[in-house]
């Protein structure tokens, strides 16, 4: 026993000394960790597990996914990764909603500390229960116009992308819904099924099974294009009947991951290469199509621009709702209208 321990200890020591000698020459030489800021099993989590599994063969290392949810809009996970060295060995898995973290007092950084890679997102749509009296979006809008705040609407949590879509719909059609918040998309959809609320706005990926199964009746897509869904009539775009919505919509999900923007360029290039290959892979494309995700594949400057836009939009919308702790002005976040796309 003693001998065994001695051998073990000495061998560990030797390997340690040797390990010190191997210089940090080429990235990546050890496993990468992707810290997802939302809890396990959610959309951001699944997409991050998917993309990293597809990326890892191109980088020749494992990419381990861990979850570090909590704080305000994912602030715990973001602060955790932000504190680490910018060596590219820790990614942060995030989605569009994290941009509101700063104005809500979650952390003190803006989104420009990240170098994002956007995998994509699923378009939002408005649906009602299959036994609802509403058959078109016009029905709903007319009912609300006739009787303000009579229609109960759920759209995930307060300040989520679905909530922002609901607000944009309300602004564009000049009506006011009675918004009932739920802690996530799944409970919001369940609330329509149980009849607790009248309509729900969440993403197509989250609703598709319930729509195909005849539990939910889709009214309109909140993007410019109509959507075909097997076994169901084509879902029209809300812009067809309410063209003025184009001023406020679409607001698309942006799910992906990021590294710190001060990471070396060689690391960024290596990751971008693997990311593009993964996005192009057959498996990811089929999966995205089957689950109604629209792949974006943005990286570099265009991805940063996208996040800057989302940050501005979320921050100022929440400011208008009076739900911010720190004003976007104090953080130096420009208004959406003043945003310079560089």
């Amino acid at each position: 026993m003693k001998k065994a321990i001695a051998t073990l200890v000495s061998s560990v020591l030797i390997t340690c000394v040797c390990a010190n000698v191997t210089a940090k020459d080429r990235y990546p030489e050890r496993d990468i960790t992707n810290v997802v800021v939302w809890s396990a099993g959610g959309g951001t989590d699944v997409i991050n597990r998917m993309i990293t599994s597809e990326m890892s063969p191109h980088l020749d290392v494992n990419i381990n996914v861990t979850n570090r949810p909590g704080g305000v809009a994912g602030s715990l996970g973001m602060s955790y990764v932000h504190k680490l060295k910018p060596d590219g060995y820790t990614l942060v898995g995030l989605s569009e909603s994290v941009v509101a973290s700063a104005v809500q007092g979650g952390w003190k950084q803006r989104m420009d500390v990240w170098h994002p890679f956007i995998v994509g997102g699923s378009p939002d749509l408005i649906s009602v229960s299959s036994n609802s009296k509403f058959n078109t979006l016009e029905d709903v809008i007319n009912a609300v116009k006739a009787n303000p705040k009579s229609v109960k609407a759920s759209a995930g949590g307060a300040g989520s992308i679905h909530h922002l879509n609901l607000l944009a719909l309300a602004n564009g059609t000049e009506v006011e819904f009675n918004y009932i918040p739920y802690p996530g998309s799944a409970p919001a959809q369940t609330a329509v099924l149980t009849g607790e609320v009248d309509l729900v706005i969440t993403s197509l990926a989250e609703q598709q099974q319930l729509i195909k199964g005849g539990q939910l009746k889709p009214l309109a897509m909140l993007v410019a294009n109509a959507q075909t869904l097997e076994g169901v009539d084509t879902i029209p775009s809300a812009f067809d009947s309410f063209p003025q919505l184009q001023k406020h919509l679409p607001i698309m999900q942006a799910i992906g991951f990021a590294i710190k923007s001060d990471a070396p360029d060689s690391v960024k290039n290596k990751l971008t290469m693997a990311f593009q290959k993964a996005i192009a892979s057959e498996k990811l494309r089929t999966w995205a199509k089957d689950n109604y995700y629209v792949l974006s594949g943005l990286s570099g400057q265009s991805a940063s621009n996208e996040f800057a836009f989302l940050e501005s939009l979320f921050s100022w919308t929440l400011q208008d709702l009076g739900a911010t702790k720190i004003s976007p002005k104090a953080l130096g976040i420009p208004k959406p209208a003043d945003l310079q796309m560089n």
Partner: peptide, 26 residues
């Protein structure tokens, strides 16, 4: 229904989706 009944089931939902199965009425 595609609605997880408990927290570990929520994780299971994610795992199933990773394998291309979307649980639900269909």
């Amino acid at each position: 229904l595609g609605i997880p009944g408990s927290p570990p089931a929520a994780m299971l939902l994610g795992a199933l989706m990773l394998h291309g199965i979307t649980p639900g009425p269909m």
